[in-house]
Amino acid sequence: MSDQEDQNSPDFDLGQATADLSLEDIIEFFNAKLKNHNCPACLENSWTDVRAADSIHGLIAQPLNGPVTVPAPMYPLVSVSCNNCGFIRSHMAAFVLSWKESNGKK
């Protein structure tokens, strides 16, 4: 495994690794880790990757009280949308990447 692939390496780029995840990787993660793959809103099980090729979805953390931090800490997400109702399901990218790595997936 190269330094770029090791999440503990200072050279690891979580944003790039997240962008490299495929919809197939995300669905395999769902199948392995989730007890229910259906949309919690409409109960369908059909998903589309909603990440744009040139951007990273993420949660930006800001304090509730006090000054805004710039740049703010960002936690990359993998996000999929239900093809039936549009519900968006997001999971921390680091969990999906860790699962993929621990299962020997490239």
Rank of each mutant, 00 (worst) to 15 (best):
residue 10 P to R: 08
residue 11 D to V: 03
residue 11 D to W: 04
residue 11 D to R: 10
residue 12 F to W: 10
residue 13 D to A: 07
residue 14 L to R: 04
residue 15 G to F: 00
residue 16 Q to F: 15
residue 16 Q to N: 09
residue 17 A to Q: 14
residue 18 T to R: 03
residue 18 T to K: 00
residue 18 T to F: 03
residue 20 D to L: 14
residue 20 D to W: 03
residue 22 S to F: 05
residue 24 E to W: 15
residue 24 E to G: 12
residue 24 E to S: 15
residue 25 D to G: 07
residue 25 D to L: 07
residue 25 D to Q: 05
residue 26 I to F: 02
residue 26 I to L: 00
residue 27 I to C: 05
residue 28 E to G: 12
residue 29 F to I: 05
residue 29 F to G: 07
residue 30 F to K: 03
residue 31 N to W: 10
residue 31 N to K: 15
residue 32 A to R: 09
residue 35 K to C: 03
residue 35 K to P: 00
residue 36 N to T: 10
residue 37 H to T: 08
residue 38 N to S: 13
residue 38 N to Q: 14
residue 39 C to I: 08
residue 39 C to Y: 06
residue 41 A to E: 11
residue 42 C to V: 02
residue 42 C to R: 03
residue 42 C to E: 03
residue 43 L to V: 07
residue 43 L to W: 11
residue 43 L to I: 05
residue 43 L to M: 11
residue 44 E to K: 07
residue 44 E to L: 07
residue 45 N to R: 13
residue 45 N to G: 06
residue 46 S to I: 12
residue 46 S to E: 07
residue 46 S to Y: 12
residue 46 S to W: 14
residue 46 S to L: 10
residue 47 W to R: 04
residue 48 T to Y: 05
residue 49 D to S: 01
residue 50 V to F: 04
residue 50 V to S: 03
residue 50 V to Q: 00
residue 51 R to L: 14
residue 51 R to A: 15
residue 52 A to S: 15
residue 54 D to H: 15
residue 55 S to F: 15
residue 57 H to E: 13
residue 58 G to I: 06
residue 58 G to L: 10
residue 58 G to Q: 13
residue 62 Q to I: 06
residue 65 N to L: 15
residue 65 N to R: 14
residue 66 G to D: 12
residue 66 G to L: 12
residue 67 P to Q: 11
residue 68 V to G: 04
residue 68 V to T: 08
residue 68 V to A: 12
residue 69 T to F: 06
residue 69 T to D: 05
residue 69 T to Y: 07
residue 70 V to G: 02
residue 70 V to I: 12
residue 71 P to N: 07
residue 72 A to P: 00
residue 72 A to W: 00
residue 73 P to D: 05
residue 73 P to V: 06
residue 73 P to I: 08
residue 73 P to K: 05
residue 74 M to D: 06
residue 75 Y to L: 05
residue 75 Y to R: 03
residue 77 L to V: 08
residue 77 L to N: 12
residue 78 V to W: 01
residue 78 V to P: 01
residue 79 S to N: 14
residue 79 S to T: 14
residue 81 S to V: 01
residue 81 S to H: 11
residue 82 C to E: 06
residue 82 C to Y: 13
residue 83 N to V: 00
residue 86 G to R: 02
residue 86 G to H: 04
residue 87 F to E: 02
residue 88 I to G: 06
residue 89 R to V: 11
residue 89 R to I: 13
residue 89 R to W: 14
residue 89 R to T: 11
residue 89 R to D: 10
residue 89 R to P: 00
residue 90 S to K: 11
residue 90 S to G: 12
residue 93 A to T: 01
residue 94 A to V: 11
residue 95 F to L: 05
residue 95 F to S: 09
residue 95 F to M: 05
residue 95 F to G: 02
residue 96 V to S: 00
residue 97 L to S: 09
residue 99 W to T: 02
residue 99 W to R: 03
residue 99 W to F: 04
residue 99 W to P: 02
residue 99 W to G: 00
residue 99 W to Q: 01
residue 100 K to S: 14
residue 100 K to G: 06
residue 100 K to C: 08
residue 100 K to P: 03
